[in-house]
Amino acid sequence: MSVKKMTERPLGFRSVPVLTDPDVAHYPEFKDFLVKTFELDKEPLAAPGLLDVDGRCFELIFVGRSGQPFPAAIEIAALVEGLEPMDTAQTDKDLWQIMEWLVDGVGGRWTIEALTTMGKIYRVTPDGT
């Protein structure tokens, strides 16, 4: 597993929205982790955050809402080259890796082990197991 922050958006890639969460502060520590990782407290409306997942790129777009701390919401988009179709099965696997990176980064009571076990119980992992 390799999820790393990137600094430069690759040229010639289009943005495909794959996941939206309107309440990234549902558990405040998740928002705090993203604020710290992408330095959103310094420049909230800078370019989207970028993640490299085993060589594939994802854009994290942080969204504000009046009356709520920034960011209120998040949109995750896969960056797909040109007009080529997105590999949906691979995207599901990559999103799972991003979730592992997220819960591991948030830490405390949130663990990859719990995520994995929950995924297996409800068969919501990318391979359906």
């Binding site: 996941l19 969460d21 558990y27 928002k31 998040i74 999103l95």
Partner: peptide, 18 residues
């Protein structure tokens, strides 16, 4: 499983996407 299942980003993935 409950709180993890509804965590930010995890909820839309497990319940929405999957």
């Amino acid at each position: 499983p409950w709180l993890t299942m509804h965590a930010p980003i995890v909820g839309p993935y497990t319940m929405g996407r999957q």
